[in-house]
Design a protein around this nucleic acid. Structure first.
Lengths: 232, 232
DNA sequence: GACGAATTGGACAAGAGTGTCCAAAACTCA
DNA sequence: TGAGTTTTGGACACTCTTGTCCAATTCGTC
């Protein structure tokens, strides 16, 4: 990845390569490959790019170091593979969660709170997202390509989908807003505002529900019709 | 810092030590020491703890490597010193900015927007805060003491001061809220929601003002009296 | 069981970083 | 100028990491 433009090409090639099922995945070494990438994810997340050693990854994967070089290649290639994996998982989870957005709410307050809880649990609090964010933030300056890929394949891709949901709510008269994109950003910010932002902190269900309720209440005070926020 | 409890003791000793002016600062090597810590800050922020090399720091400080070992000690000691420095600066800036909170506003909307702009510029957008956050996030798992110190000396210390300002606004009848702490957290989240959250992004004055206006407008829609948000 | 492919573990060279030691040079202050 | 301190740069031992090579072993499949 010493060359800035070559790495992103490699990354994209890998993605399409994967869609047609790489030969490596059809044969028996698929499990080993999986174990390696999974272990690499854990170690990269824990120690960062520089701090992660191939030996540590090999040990975590219960695999010889040579196998890593056989299966994937060098450290950069491994890193790219890890980022791609986290990206795909996170993106899938976001799409999945977004499908449960309350499109035609009976009780908009309650349903938005429940959606916020799901969103936080699946996409914001989850380890993968935090980890990717951290990796991108750390190595992004050294490998700007990762940053680009993050914007293309990461959570950013799905933001328009979120704001579209709010636009629909507004169109149906459930809320009142002029800028759905802004509303979506503020919704995310508000339900995140009340969560502990320390890296390793675990959030109990009760805390999570309280945070979601607080965020949605303020959101509906600002954008809801009539007394939508009062019941919360 | 191999021992968990010893490091924080060292850190705290250094702080009190500094208040009575360490002998090192009284003599001529004060400038060198400053240059070293300043350079170390830059390099640690750029490359992280593991990625930063003493040689790179020495070069950045225009100082021989041996001088670093003479003046400060080993790498861990240097790191602690850097975190302390960023902490103190950030804390001071926050207190300073907080002093300009509109206590008796004529035009609450405009004055809150202006305060939000100052807060963002001085404390949220600023390089030191982002850098410290990043360092803490990265090395926090390896050095839990840093995390503790961050909570004690970092921005968290001043949150009660922020919510006290909002409580006063509410008491004076300028806004309506029941939980000042919650309101303060949401205020911060809202004015942050509209900023680009990429690490190295620069924010223009226009973007900053727009973001502040958007955040304050929603805040006042939720918590303001009468039509306080309309003018924005 | 036998063949081919994958895996293992150990050895290896090359490079980089840490921390120490030391003698020469530069600086400070009287 | 001179004594005492600081700084410098180079040499050094030590450790860790990366990536390659290779022979022995294991595994999958026929």
């Amino acid at each position: 990845m010493s060359n800035s433009s070559s790495a992103i090409i490699i990354l994209r090639m890998e993605i399409s390569h994967d869609l047609v099922r790489s030969p490596a995945m059809q044969r028996g070494n698929y499990n080993k490959r999986c174990a390696i990438i999974s272990a690499a994810t854990a170690v990269f997340v824990r120690d960062g790019y520089v701090g992660a050693s191939i030996d540590a990854i090999a040990e975590e994967a219960n695999v010889s170091r040579q196998t890593i070089y056989n299966q994937i290649g060098d450290k950069e290639r491994l890193f790219v593979e890890v980022v791609r994996g986290i990206n795909e998982q996170g993106s899938a989870r976001l799409v999945e969660t977004l499908a449960t957005f309350p499109d035609a709410p009976q009780d908009i307050g309650r349903e938005l709170v429940e959606f916020a809880i799901r969103l936080t649990r699946n996409c914001l609090c989850d380890e993968g997202s935090r980890a990717l964010r951290k990796l991108i933030e750390n190595e992004g300056s050294r490998y700007p390509e990762l940053f680009e890929t993050w914007k293309d394949y990461g959570p950013g891709k799905n933001w328009p989908a979120i704001s579209a949901r709010f636009a629909r709510l507004a169109h149906d008269g459930d809320i009142e807003l002029d800028d759905p994109d802004l509303a979506a950003r503020q919704f995310m910010a508000l339900i995140r505002a009340d969560l502990p932002n320390e890296p390793g902190a675990t959030v109990s269900d009760a805390e999570l529900e309280q945070a979601a309720r607080n965020g949605v209440r303020t959101f509906l005070r600002a954008y809801g019709k009539r007394d939508a926020a009062l019941a919360l």
